[in-house]
Design a protein around this nucleic acid. Structure first.
Lengths: 260, 260
DNA sequence: ATGAGTATTCGACATTGTCGAATGTGCTTC
DNA sequence: GAAGCACATTCGACAATGTCGAATACTCAT
């Protein structure tokens, strides 16, 4: 059925995606973005509104995403076995390294953070759960690309790769070379490729098939590169512990075969 | 158009709602829940899957909610003016009271937490953003019911009201009486109505129309009722500060007229 | 109050979604 | 490994639904 989706549902999802991008949009604006007549867009938006998936903004005519998405996403997070098992270990990791920790999974050509432990220094930090980062520009993403060749293949159908900073690897050949390195070393480094001034190191989490299904990263200021050996050890231990709880026979994982 | 939604989109939303309830469901199970043939359900699910709104579980045939919901909900939270403005004040409130704080808005017959400040005592607490609570069983909800009569009217079309604990108010007359009290006092109390052992006190947040659009609650153990006067003052100040930033001409808000 | 821009309603009809039948897949048991 | 059962997925006919242009209503700025 892939390739033959229900058009009305596809269009509804594209309305949500447009609102994700631009936040507040009127019917006519959505029509322009989606290349659809206003009356068609109106029908879609009203149908989504009925379920709280979109709402009209409080003082105007434009629409925005709605609260049902928040409720559903809470359930999504609750359903993730890897997240539930990682909570304790990522918490420990953050406490013992003094660093923020991210747990990420594959999300189209990106990685999405499904759990975030802020730096345990008492400062106020923006919650990161739900943030998406291009896979090739993040340590989390590079780990998943390295251990999941199908993910890399899928990504490479979408060249040109986006450049976030001057440090982002956008040449496919350079990226592939870097990913070989990741598998050899068992971890990936991100050095200002996604966010200036920010570095991170990520390692894979393996499931019961022994394949990488997630990645754990610690985040540090770029000026404090490279990561201390002690933190590296704690990072690897956390990932190994999560992997063991998921039933993984081995750690680090095997590189998945591409003909899954 | 309310009442004449696009059926395919309505069905897609109902698939999401079914997965919200039961977490993991196969096509046949969804068919039973939705009263639709498996092949129809399959088309819907595949269309949602294309956009990451549902995924197949890692080792099985059943489906679950997908990561796109997390990304979209992050944007939803980011879009909320009241939340952006409340972040600082709820943070202060939590610090100064030593209590957990919730910011909630109306969500069908419930209230949904759009921001959560954990108790600032360094203990690990479950994140509550995205949690929904029946409106009549929570201080947050009772404030909104009291100041937004249309919300109460909508709720009362859905009797019988659900009982969560032996303390929950389920008689419409008792609830309405309690809500009159809320407006007189300017705050609502929740005393083990939603969760045994848990109490909270909530006050309204007003927007530029001078109407309640959200509520802020502090959460305390039921054994520590009633809330200290000092904390009560801090709670009211936080709500007033958020309201002022939203452009409210007055605080506490007026009770909205029912013919909005 | 007026006008422009936009949202919403309405209804004809073509296209799309639906759904029953057939086929394929996965899992359990022997 | 084979068989059987439960369930998922594919296929295609056709009816119902979604689409979209025209008309109407609403909102906002001047």
């Amino acid at each position: 059925m892939l390739g033959t989706v229900i058009q009305a549902i596809d269009r509804a999802a594209r309305v949500l995606a447009a609102l994700q991008g631009s936040r507040h949009l009127g019917i006519s604006e959505l029509g322009v973005i989606l290349q659809l007549p206003p009356s068609t867009v109106h029908g879609i938006v009203k149908s989504l509104q009925e379920h709280g998936l979109v709402v009209k903004e409080p003082h105007g005519q434009r629409y925005m995403l709605g609260p049902t998405l928040l409720q559903l996403s809470n359930v999504y997070l609750d359903t993730l076995d890897v997240r539930a098992r990682a909570m304790r270990w990522t918490g420990d990791l953050s406490e013992r390294t003094g660093l923020a920790v991210r747990l990420g999974v594959e999300f189209f050509d990106q990685v999405i953070v499904i759990h975030h432990e802020p730096r345990p220094d008492g400062t106020r930090q923006m919650p990161e759960t739900g943030l998406t980062i291009p896979a090739h520009a993040s340590a989390l993403g590079k780990v998943l690309l390295a251990y999941r060749p199908a993910f890399l293949q899928s990504l490479l159908t979408k060249v040109p790769l986006r450049s976030l900073t001057g440090e982002t690897l956008v040449e496919p050949e350079l990226l592939e070379k870097a990913l070989v390195d990741v598998v050899e070393k068992g971890y990936a480094v991100e050095d200002e490729e996604a966010v200036l001034g920010e570095a991170s190191v990520a390692v894979p989490v393996a499931d019961r098939d022994g394949e990488a299904v997630a990645a754990i990263a610690v985040v540090l200021p770029a000026s404090q590169q490279p990561l201390a050996d002690s933190a590296m050890t704690l990072l690897r231990e956390a990932a190994r512990n999560v992997s063991r709880e998921l039933g993984s026979p081995t750690w680090p994982p095997v590189v998945a075969t591409t003909d899954d």
